[in-house]
């Protein structure tokens, strides 16, 4: 198994992090190193954390409805920082209607409430496979590939 460094982040103002903590715990139990940011991080802070921690994956959790702004903003800043090889996934309350725009921004997986954590793990396995054979999957690596 490839051990990944994964940032689990709470962008914006909402204070609900049970979902983020459940995912963080599941990723830890699957053998990954999970950096949890704590609540209320700005997109700029999240990107700096991803950069400093050399995380190759970032999971964003939002339950406040601000995902439509915050997720694409994180994607944009990752690309600006030269971190286009980082894979972005999201979770929380994300209505179907909002998803195409997030995919367009580079979010590769969206996992709503009630998603079994195994689905997130299998998403990550696919990421590792794609990286190993050179298929694009990072936020800045233009591709139609997505899992959600």
């Amino acid at each position: 198994m490839t051990r990944l460094r994964i940032v689990v982040a709470k962008p914006g103002l909402d204070g609900h992090d049970r979902g983020a903590k459940v995912v963080a715990r599941a990723l830890r139990d699957a053998g990954h190193e999970v950096i949890y940011t704590g609540l209320r991080r700005t997109p700029e802070e999240i990107v700096r954390i991803v950069e400093d921690e050399d995380a190759s994956i970032v999971g964003l959790s939002s339950l406040s409805g601000a995902h439509a702004f915050l997720f694409p903003r994180v994607c944009e800043l990752l690309n600006e920082a030269g971190l286009g090889d980082v894979v972005v996934f999201g979770g929380g309350i994300i209505p179907q209607a909002d998803r195409p725009a997030l995919h367009e921004a580079g979010v590769r997986g969206i996992f709503g409430p009630g998603t079994p954590t195994d689905e997130v793990l299998s998403f990550l396995e696919e990421v590792v496979e794609r990286r190993a054979n050179g298929s694009p999957c990072g936020v800045g690596e233009g591709s139609d590939w997505r899992r959600s």
Partner: peptide, 26 residues
């Protein structure tokens, strides 16, 4: 058991986390 790790120090690092002059690594 799993070899995994939950690195949570940043939760409590509110000041240095917001200071871009400081490099923090878990």
């Amino acid at each position: 058991v799993s070899g995994g790790s939950l690195l949570g120090d940043r939760m409590r690092m509110e000041e240095s986390g917001a200071d871009e002059r400081i490099y923090v690594r878990s």
